[in-house]
Amino acid sequence: MNFLLINFFLISILLITTFFIFKSTSLIGIVALTGAFTLVCAAIYVNLDAVDVAFTEAAVGSGISTILMVMAVAKLPEGKIKPLVNLFPSLIISVCIVIILMVIISNLPLLGDPNAPIHLHVTPEYIKESESFFHIPNVVTNILASYRGFDTLGETIVIFTAGLGVIALLTGNTLNRKTKFTKKLKK
């Protein structure tokens, strides 16, 4: 019961933070709220037994991500964000999506149900083998590196490629739009 109440409280904070991000008109304020948002997420993950995920979220989400956003905002001019657009049409779309997802959600198993389909297949074997064959207590590391090795290889390559992309975009000799435009005119 305690678990459920803490969960309710933390997720309500997430929703409130989202509302204030939506309302905020200053860039640095949005970045600060995003940092708070990810820190609350880390607390939620600890409450839901996902300690590895919480560790990652605390280090990556609220550490590096916030620093990068501050660095980006520091290069941009200060000033207020322009008012929101398309409020009415996007409200209609959002309400439609909420209704559709509510119908789907009513068929899902409840939070923490031990007989949900996700807990019955594959994972019991992973936990059993991790104890008897691998002798590695942390099942998450075991699945990450061994059972799902291909998946992790792909993710590593995605991170590498994103790094290459940022290096190429920010430190490479990119053409300025105006010089390109004048070149086109000369032709």
Partner: peptide
């Protein structure tokens, strides 16, 4: 399995660390 997992995690660690440093340096030098 032990050896493989340690090596693979080392590879992941090196990539993530250097990519994050590279991200910061390129954002700071822009």
């Amino acid at each position: 399995q032990h050896l493989g997992i340690i090596l693979v995690e080392l590879g992941v660690g090196i990539t993530v660390a250097t990519v994050m440093i590279a991200l910061y340096h390129s954002f700071a030098s822009f």
